[in-house]
Design a protein around this nucleic acid. Structure first.
Length: 288
DNA sequence: GTGATAACCTGGGTGC
DNA sequence: TGCACCCAGGTTATCA
């Protein structure tokens, strides 16, 4: 599932092919992609548009177009952008034809992904500010800021760091990996973390995301690079998707539970359970 | 205001 | 082999 490192990988790979090019043709095959806007007017508006830059905010891929317009693409769980594939794969939802003869396909088996065109005059920054907290690699991201935002919160820390309004770009994989690196149980109340734990967590989030970017993302299900290749961060997972396997630090078997409605992987020794039981219902599921 | 949950969607896994 | 059912998860809307 594409999170910040996967989206950043796509951006870096696609930008050289896309920036400066004009969209000669745009075919939106799945009307859901642009909801609540109807797809055909969006496709018509995109035809002839010049892509000035390809940017990223959180998990959004932002196509900055001429005329102060922005196409915000979100891959959600199974979306992928493929540059010039040899043949058209199943579940192709959008076809972009470039003025140099190449093409880009948006493919999404589960159809969760979205594409929103913000026309001239729409405040792209305000749109993103309403949905996204600080970028982990930005100066605004710090243990102090996180601690301040979490003050009084009783929700589990995992739910807190998955909330894109708190931290932009962290999804289920990097949440589990970060919490393990920081030695924090996912059920611990966000507002109950100590300053030292916030410092460890902030550092762990940056570390996990940076490793993910270096490895060009994780390919455990559908994620593919723009050329169809796979990322390699799944080979570096410490806990995620490793239920039943030994913890890389202490050897205790990794456990899979459910926290905040998400499959959650942790080491019960390195991430001790909080003394007071959190309100969130958890369920032990089969390990391995 | 906060937290929990359902809904969206479909491929893959499991059980019969 | 084929069918039915369940699970996975990012975001949004809805409810308590």
């Amino acid at each position: 599932m594409p999170e910040l490192p996967e989206v950043e990988t796509i951006r870096r790979q696609l930008a050289p092919h896309l920036e400066g090019r004009t969209l000669a043709s745009v075919e939106i095959l799945d009307a859901r992609w642009t909801l609540p806007e109807p797809s055909e007017p969006v496709a018509a508006a995109l035809r002839g548009a010049r892509v000035e830059a390809l940017e990223r905010a959180g998990k959004y891929l932002i196509w900055r177009l001429d005329g102060d317009r922005h196409l915000l693409v979100h891959l959600r769980m199974t979306g992928a952008l493929l540059w010039d594939p040899a043949s058209e794969p199943p579940h192709t939802r959008v076809r972009f034809g470039l003025d140099d003869g190449h093409r880009i396909l948006y493919v999404d088996p589960r159809r969760f992904g979205t594409g929103h065109l913000l026309s001239a005059g729409a405040d792209c920054a305000a749109y993103l500010d309403a949905r996204l907290g600080p970028e982990p690699f930005s100066p605004e991201f710090s243990a102090t800021a996180l601690r301040r935002a979490a003050r009084g919160r009783r929700a589990p820390i995992k739910a807190f760091i998955l909330d894109q309004r708190r931290i932009a770009g962290v999804g289920n994989i990097y949440a589990d990996e970060s919490l393990f690196r920081a030695g924090i149980h996912p059920e611990r109340e966000a507002g109950a973390l100590t300053p030292a734990q916030w410092a460890a967590l902030a550092e762990a989030i940056i570390c996990a995301l940076a490793l993910g970017i270096d490895a060009k993302g994780a390919s455990i299900d559908d994620f593919r690079h723009v050329d169809g290749q796979r990322g390699s961060f799944q080979d570096l997972f410490l806990v995620f998707n490793r239920a039943g396997q030994p913890c890389p630090r202490c050897g205790t078997a990794i456990v899979k539970t459910v926290v905040a409605g998400r499959g959650t992987h942790l080491c019960p020794s390195c991430q001790p359970r909080p003394r007071r039981r959190a309100a969130t219902r958890t369920r032990r599921v089969a390990a391995g």
